[in-house]
Every structure is written in structure tokens, then in C-alpha cells.
């Protein structure tokens, strides 16, 4: 603090409270709507305090016990999302950490070419190759499978860079010492490099879990079977129900359930998250 300015401090707090309101209100109102019966939501003015339908609405969507709702039980979709998010996070970290290790610690022909091939994936998000990627997945019989949801998304240039960057900071003496003690490349990787990378892995895990959970376009393409659908995609199906007014309490209960897991992860692992995010800039 450079100088005391009461006015400015009050102003800062006011701005931050406005920011918080904008952040919290949409989620709060969604929660409120999810605890009321449909007719209460449909009559103006809209309720601003939670109602008493919490258990009814949430158990109804979780078990899929809603007539003509056009969706699989939310429990099933949550499980699919969880498998996908974990699969993507773990898969990306695993294949990136080993390829970064190869690129930093080995001298072999084509090393630079491989590095550039991995780099190129940064420039080819799913959105720019929608149909051919779908065709590849279809030809490999990956539609409506967990492998299909996960595999095409686990290449990661950013994660590879992050590990590469980190490995370059590990002092050479480590390897020299390990060698003198008779450690080979695999031993060195498991006993030295992986334990040193723990914090990086944790940081990356938070970001990638959220990334995986929030995937939209790819699950939309590869899952046609409702039982394989993910929760984030499932919500949009609920809204587009045959021109009728969506059943908002159920839609909002599903929405709340969809945003809880990543929000919990980010709140609990805030420090790792911020670290992982800011590291990417480097």
C-alpha cells in the first residue's frame, strides 16, 4: 500500500462486490430455480429464495425418473463425464511426461521432427477438423465408447512443453550422480524425474480435469447413444425439447450438478490451479 486513500479503498471493495455479484448471481438463481416446482418458475416474478423441492427435483433428475424429459439419468451422465475427465487428464499427463522426457534426455534421430509434430497439434483444435476426425473415429469403431471420448483428445503440446521446460531446469548433476550409482534411463525417470515433477503434475491435473469435464464438441460428435452422453452435452439436449418451454427446475438442477465437480476441484486446489495456469504462459 503506497498511501492511504479511504475513498479509493471503499471504491475498490464496491467494484469487487459488483464483480462477485455478477459471478455468483447466475449460479445462485439457477440453484433457486432448481428447488421450485415448474409453475412457480413460470409465473412472474421469478422466486429469488430457495423453495422446498430440492430433494424431489434432484432425485428425479439423478435417477432419470422424469417422464418425457428426453435424457438419460443424470447419475449416468455424471459418471461418463467423470470417466472422460479423468481419462483425459491422466492420459494427457502420462503421454506428455514420457515424450518430454524422451525429447529432453535422449539424443536420437528425428528428435526435432517429433518435437515439431507435437507442436503442430496446438494449431489443429478439433473445431477446425470436425468431420474428418469424426470419420477416423467412426472407422476405428470408437463411436459411443470411452476410448472414443478420450483418445482423440489426449495429445497435448502444452503439457509436453510444460514438462520439457521443467526438465530443462533439473540440474545435470542429478543425472551424473544417478549414473555413477548405476541408474539407467528408466530408473532415473521413475526415481528422480517423476518425484521432482510432482507439483507440476498436480497443477496440470487440475487444469486438465476441468478441460476434460467441460469438453463439448467432441462428445457431441462421438456419442449418439444417450447412455454414453456426458453431462455438459446432456444439458443442451434438455433445453432443445421439441419447441416446448424447457422444464427449467430440472434443467437447472442438472446444470448445478454439472458445475459442481469442476468448481469443487478448482476451489480445493486453487493454489495448484493458479500455478498451473500461469506456468503455461512461459
Amino acid at each position: 500500500m503506497i498511501e492511504r486513500r479511504r475513498g479509493l479503498t471503499v471504491f475498490s471493495h464496491a467494484v469487487l462486490w459488483c464483480g462477485l455479484a455478477v459471478v455468483v448471481l447466475p449460479v445462485y438463481l439457477a440453484f433457486v430455480a432448481s428447488t421450485h416446482p415448474l409453475d412457480a418458475v413460470l409465473t412472474a416474478p421469478i422466486p429469488v429464495l430457495p423453495g422446498d423441492m430440492f430433494w424431489e427435483n434432484y432425485t428425479a433428475v439423478l435417477t432419470g425418473d422424469v417422464a418425457n424429459f428426453g435424457s438419460a439419468p443424470v447419475v449416468l451422465m455424471l459418471a461418463n463425464s467423470l470417466v472422460m475427465a479423468l481419462g483425459i487428464a491422466v492420459g494427457k499427463i502420462a503421454i506428455s511426461v514420457i515424450s518430454a522426457y524422451a525429447i529432453v534426455y535422449f539424443k536420437f534421430p528425428l528428435r526435432t521432427l517429433f518435437f515439431w509434430l507435437i507442436f503442430v497439434t496446438l494449431m489443429l483444435p478439433v473445431e477446425v477438423r470436425i468431420i474428418p476426425t469424426f470419420e477416423v473415429a467412426a472407422n476405428l469403431a470408437l463411436l459411443n465408447t470411452y476410448q472414443g471420448l478420450i483418445l482423440p483428445l489426449i495429445a497435448s503440446a502444452t503439457a509436453t512443453f510444460l514438462f520439457r521446460q521443467f526438465f530443462l531446469t533439473i540440474p545435470d548433476q542429478m543425472l551424473e550422480a544417478a549414473r555413477i550409482d548405476g541408474a539407467g534411463p528408466i530408473r532415473f525417470f521413475i526415481d528422480i524425474v517423476l518425484p521432482l515433477s510432482r507439483t507440476n503434475i498436480a497443477a496440470l491435473f487440475v487444469i486438465l480435469f476441468i478441460y476434460g469435464w467441460n469438453q463439448y464438441l467432441w462428445p457431441l460428435l462421438v456419442t449418439t447413444d444417450q447412455d454414453m452422453g456426458t453431462i455438459v452435452v446432456g444439458i443442451s439436449n434438455l433445453i432443445q425439447v421439441a419447441e416446448a418451454e424447457p422444464r427449467w427446475p430440472y434443467v437447472m438442477a442438472t446444470t448445478i450438478l454439472a458445475l459442481i465437480p469442476p468448481v469443487v476441484v478448482i476451489v480445493l486446489m486453487q493454489r495448484q490451479f493458479v500455478r498451473g495456469l500461469v506456468e503455461q504462459e512461459k
Binding site: I98, V136, P152
Partner: peptide, 21 residues
């Protein structure tokens, strides 16, 4: 060994990124 280590990443890249592009 180094080829084995980059193989998974490279396979995914070639099959699901470069070929479709």
C-alpha cells in the same frame, strides 16, 4: 527407448490430428 516414449503421443497426433487435417 526414446521412440517408445514418444510413440503414444505421436500416434495420437498422427491419427487424430494430422491425418484428419
Amino acid at each position: 527407448l526414446p521412440y517408445l516414449l514418444v510413440a503414444p503421443q505421436l500416434a495420437v497426433t498422427l491419427i487424430f490430428f494430422i491425418w484428419p487435417a
